[in-house]
Design a protein around this nucleic acid. Structure first.
Lengths: 155, 155
DNA sequence: GCCATTTATGTCGCTTGCGATATAAATTTT
DNA sequence: AAAATTTATATCGCAAGCGACATAAATGGC
């Protein structure tokens, strides 16, 4: 180990990457009952709060690029979960709205997911206050990286 | 909001997912100087600690499936960073070893990455002790999810 | 009004990540 | 030792995720 700074175990980044993947995997069997993936579930959470919404608003709330969200939404449209239509005032926009099926999935999600996730993490020694602090710290990291992001090399 | 339990902001999961992506994005310009991606960098960190190693050991250390690691390693082989050869004692194994180029990349990584990452996060209000606790909490989550994982539905 | 710029969305190509499945080699059972 | 099982690796197909780029519509400047 010439360079201990690079050691895998010392990296927050690797743990974030791994924890993120494992949590997504923990969601997967529950989401399969709904017939969706985790990123699709995120889109649904945004739309359950407000529907309809343009693609751009959804992408911003999820901190994703539209070229990620567009195909995702197209797959969900094909699955009958939501609909897309051109905006009235702004014809560039695609307005995304839940279908009856998409609306009804909220109740199913509620009956499956919170219980399932708390079961998955029940053996975890962290307490509620730990999770609260953790969420705040992750927000700090996210905000810092988003701020440092603003438009590439200033040209 | 019929079901506030599902609210996006309340979810640790979404923050992990977002923080992980943004940190990977912060690594990207530095890794591009080395001509690699973030998962490829993880493979290199494992090999810098010990080379050669079979595919399986690398996958286990990264908590990834071999069907993710195999193609990743094949791309790195094509890039001249590492080599693969059949195991002597166990002919099922593929033993992965760094090339001269792969070995030399450690020094380059050291000169670029720790400094770059600390700059990316310099505006973040978290202190060293916060990062240490954060790492431990992420480990708790990871361990919990790994334990609950052990081999699918017991059949 | 007209042109330059910005914005909203989309396509393309590439790398991950993973479930399902295949294959060969090693190990265990009987 | 022959058969059954396990293990190590790999291939395939699909969904993300994102950089690069394309297009159309809206906006701003003159």
């Amino acid at each position: 180990m010439a360079y201990p700074e690079l050691k895998l175990d010392n990296q927050i980044c690797f743990r974030l990457y791994t924890a993120s993947r494992l949590i997504t995997q923990a969601y997967t069997p529950m989401l399969q009952e709904l017939g969706i993936t985790y990123p699709q579930y995120l889109v649904l959470m945004v739309l359950w709060e407000k529907s309809p919404q343009p693609v751009n608003d959804i992408a911003k709330k999820l901190v994703l690029e539209t070229n990620t969200v567009t195909p995702l939404i197209q797959r969900m449209e094909k699955a009958g979960i939501l609909t897309r239509k051109k905006g009235d005032s702004d014809k560039r926009q695609q307005i995304v709205g839940l279908t009856k099926k998409g609306i009804e999935m909220e109740e199913m999600a509620h009956s499956i997911i919170p219980g399932g996730m708390s079961e998955s993490l029940s053996a975890c020694p962290l307490q509620v206050n730990d999770y609260v602090r953790l969420a705040g710290e992750l927000d700090s990291i996210i905000e810092t990286l988003l701020r440092g992001h603003h438009g590439r090399p200033a040209h």
